[in-house]
Every structure is written in structure tokens, then in C-alpha cells.
Computed example of a mutant assay.
Amino acid sequence: MTNRKSTARLKAGHRHAVVLEQHARHAHLDVCPPELGKVRDRSHGSIRRILERLAPAGPVTRTQQQSARFRITT
């Protein structure tokens, strides 16, 4: 049993949009996957995978390797 609210699964394209939308609200900050996961009630692992996929394409930039922090590219 978990304390986490149950959330409906999002389709692949929607997950990317949700992450970018939340990240864009704080474009001036470096954020880590657990922070975004907590706000969106999603697993930080899935958020991290999305951010790592988006980084080479350009919408986000990885700013720290060790603690996996990202910033939206403006």
C-alpha cells in the first residue's frame, strides 16, 4: 500500500508536454527530476528519462551531471 495518490497514465507525447509546461513556469531555475515529479505527482524516474531525451533535442539543457539538474532552453 502506498500513500501516493493514484494518477492516470499519460500517453508518451503528453508526458513530454506536461514536463515542459511545468518546467517553463520556472524557466529561470535549474530543477531536478524529483522536484518536478513531486509537483506533477509523477515518478522522478520517468521525469528524468523525459528530460534526458529532451536535452539532446534542445528544449532543455542539463546544467549539472552529478545531481541531474536541468534548465529549459529559451
Results as ranks from 00 to 15, higher is better:
A8Q: 08
E35M: 11
T7I: 10
S67H: 15
E52S: 13
R69P: 10
A8C: 07
A68W: 14
H16S: 03
S67V: 15
A27P: 01
V60R: 02
Q22H: 05
A55R: 08
T74E: 11
R9V: 04
V18Y: 01
Q22L: 02
R49D: 12
L20S: 04
S43G: 12
S67I: 15
G58Y: 08
S43N: 08
T63L: 06
R4N: 06
A57V: 06
S43F: 05
S46I: 11
R25P: 05
D41K: 12
L29F: 12
P59M: 03
K5N: 10
S67Q: 15
G45Y: 13
K11E: 09
H26G: 01
A57C: 00
H16T: 05
L20V: 04
Q22Y: 04
H26R: 09
S46Y: 06
P59K: 00
S6K: 14
T73R: 11
T74I: 10
C32F: 12
F70I: 05
S67K: 15
R53E: 10
R15H: 00
S67N: 15
H28G: 13
R42I: 02
T63N: 09
M1V: 11
R69A: 13
E35L: 11
T61H: 10
I50A: 06
S43M: 04
A24M: 04
D30M: 13
R53K: 03
R9E: 09
T2M: 05
R25G: 15
R71I: 05
Q66N: 15
V39A: 08
T61C: 12
L20Q: 03
S43I: 01
Q22G: 02
F70V: 04
Q64W: 12
A57W: 00
K11S: 05
R42W: 06
T7D: 03
R53H: 01
L10Y: 02
Q64M: 08
T2R: 06
P34F: 04
P33M: 07
R62Y: 05
R69V: 06
S6Q: 14
H26S: 06
M1T: 15
L51M: 14
C32R: 14
L54H: 00
R4C: 00
V18W: 03
S46L: 09
T74G: 07
T74R: 13
L29K: 12
S43V: 03
A24N: 10
A17S: 08
H14W: 09
R9C: 05
S43A: 11
M1F: 13
P33F: 06
L10I: 01
A68V: 13
Q22F: 02
V39S: 04
